[in-house]
Design a protein around this nucleic acid. Structure first.
Lengths: 385, 385
DNA sequence: AACCATTACGCAAACGTTTAAGATAGATAG
DNA sequence: CTATCTATCTTAAACGTTTGCGTAATGGTT
């Protein structure tokens, strides 16, 4: 046994081994009643350790300036307690040393990340990505960051995303639900947390949460009235899943227009689909067999409307002479397709922007009052009607 | 003066006022040489303070379990030092108390946020947003989050975004430069930091940074060869800004195809534009006046190609009979426009996905080797040629 | 009985900030 | 000169984790 000395009495006598801990021999001095291990050579301290990251911290500045960390922090924040001289000295020093505050540490103590989370069904289509674009821009103007999650129209992914985001990473949540979200327990669970939530575009009806949406009802009414004005009597209506708020609202608007103008409703002219091409095609084919024949198709999704135009053209049906086709949403493709699509501009970008503005307003003022805002859109008449 | 007792000697004698600090009277005991203020009633401590946030922390669990914080942390991380019994007890307790780890604190000590930053020119077009979509999906699969910034094709915004992101918020940076970025000092400055950077789609040629891009050269060559095969001799080429790598690469591919097939190059048939509609229109109108007449237009951007088709149709020029039009990129609108656009599918989504995969590979393995990968695309022949 | 190993904990430092509160020197008032 | 004030610092606690290292209890070998 090599001569091991007790760190207390400095004597090598009466030392026994006392087990092995994490692969290191441990000793026991009977005289001092003291357990110890041979101290590892490199005591890893803040100073000796190779600095992992090259980043300068407040501590570094404080050291080279010969002041305390608190002083540096205050100087950089223009706290009145710091003399003009020290302040400017420290500021220039920070500049020289290329100091960048560690936002994680800041967020930890300030309990705020200056980041808002967005959950959105997908980003493949301009429809949603333009909302995100609006959100991002408004955020950036106020110095907020955006972290995004795609739910991919999957309800469980949406739930997982919410969970992931709500763990201190974000100051606020902006959410547009999936096509299939018809229960909102996952959202309700988060409402007791301090962080504000704003729904946009696809919203839940009865949750006391701020929401920004299109004027679906008035919009659909305007579209249907436009068709009626063109002389249509047999208007087929392509809707989304029944649970969806936009489905309900747009249907309601449509019915109002029919009623107001004394046009009878034929239930066979309503179809609920998930907007997949197959389902849409099948619905259209079904309508085409009806008698009396339909004279218009109103799709509450532009994407499907464009698809329908293609399908009708393949069948040599003249648009708008035989059947007028209108969409809803004003996606870019509506301008490209031939004939160009009549649609209702829901101003997606503005919806994103406004949702974000409401969010920021809540974050900054601390005011948590529930707002429910409709963004007015407008009818865009083109060749397809 | 009310009887103020010295906290040390408990005597009210020999006490003097000693200034006011932050609106509170300060005293000085001459006997004890001790400064003090009347202690404020509510000593705000961790326990007395109303817990700001309802969230449970390790400390809370530790307290109710009657163990130390360290034990709780270890139990939740399945550290072998913790007995199976304690572990399962603590885990169930954590579950009951709905414990969610504070990611900020974790990130601070672990020096990793499990978040990657993306800087992208814009999100209004499917072109870029589909890349983002791919990135987001790959990230999500590996448990990473994505924070995005739109540079809006503005170089200074890009610089600001980089600055903002690189302050400890992200583990890695994915960047697609603006149209106008021709200097890369702002990127070079960040390269000494520990965090990996991957460029995608629009990349810089000479920076030792990983990059994922389309096979622009081969792609353009294929497109031009296709036109030549169709008998075109006078192919006008619409290019982006000269500094852009995709401009250079695609031009190179085009020239190679011309050379290989012995087609003479007419410099008047090359136009550099910023893809704005006016500039594109002007370039096209200029070409139309040329003699011998052009028989094809190759736009390196689908968006412009679609615009060109519209413009030519307005001028009653038959496509493809008089002029063949081809694009590059395979945007969705190319399928919609009439005639449908021949284009080159650069597989934007895959580019995003692959960039993200490379990033994750670097993050996880720690391997910082520079990779430079080309994503193979393919020619899509449609009616416009 | 004397010595040693293992198991299962606890303590405290560290991550980089912010901020309440204490301290000192010098200035000012009486 | 004494009492008081102001301006300008410093100290240290907090934010919620992770983790190196120390240690008590227990049981097994000679």
């Amino acid at each position: 046994m090599p001569r091991v000395k007790c760190p207390k009495c400095q004597q090598p006598e009466r030392i026994l081994k006392s087990g092995i801990v994490r692969n290191k021999q441990r000793y026991y001095c009977k005289d001092c009643d003291y357990h110890f291990v041979i101290p590892s050579a490199r005591k890893r301290t803040r100073e000796t350790a190779a600095r992992d990251t090259g980043a300068t911290s407040l501590r570094d500045i404080a050291r080279t300036a010969g002041v305390s960390i608190a002083t540096v922090s205050r100087a950089l924040h223009d706290h009145p307690d710091i003399s003009a001289q020290t302040r400017s000295f420290i500021k220039s020093l920070a500049d020289e040393m290329n100091y960048q505050p560690n936002m994680l540490a800041q967020s930890l103590v300030n309990r705020s990340t200056h980041t808002i989370g967005v959950i959105i069904p997908n980003l493949n289509t301009t429809f949603f990505s333009s909302m995100l674009s609006g959100i991002q821009q408004v955020c950036a103007r106020s110095g907020y960051r955006v972290v995004i999650c795609q739910s991919d129209e999957d309800h469980n992914t949406e739930i997982a995303n919410i969970q992931a985001l709500m763990n201190n990473m974000i100051d606020g949540l902006l959410i547009c639900h999936t096509l299939h979200t018809d229960t909102f327990e996952h959202l309700r669970m988060q409402m007791n947390k301090r962080i504000p939530i704003v729904q946009f575009y696809r919203v839940s009806e009865d949750l006391p949460i701020s929401k920004i949406h299109a004027d679906d009802e008035a919009g659909a009414e305007a579209v249907t009235e436009h068709l009626i004005a063109k002389g249509c009597k047999r208007i087929a209506l392509l809707l989304g899943p029944k649970n969806l708020s936009i489905t309900q609202k747009r249907l309601k608007g449509h019915l109002q227009a029919l009623k107001r103008h004394g046009v009878a409703l034929d239930r066979k002219l309503l179809a609920h689909v998930d907007f997949s091409h197959e389902k849409v095609t099948r619905a259209v084919d079904h309508w085409l067999k009806l008698s009396p024949a339909i004279d218009a198709i109103f799709s509450i999704s532009d994407k499907s409307a464009v698809h329908i135009i293609g399908h009708l053209k393949k069948k040599k049906i003249k648009i708008p002479r035989q059947i007028r086709v209108v969409g809803f949403g004003n996606e870019y493709t509506g301008e490209i397709v031939e004939p160009q699509l009549t649609t209702y501009d829901v101003r997606t970008r503005e919806i994103g922007e406004e949702a974000c503005r409401v969010m920021l307003e809540q974050l900054i003022s601390g005011n948590r009052e529930v707002v429910d805002k409709r963004i007015a859109g407008k009818l865009i008449v083109r060749q397809s009607s």
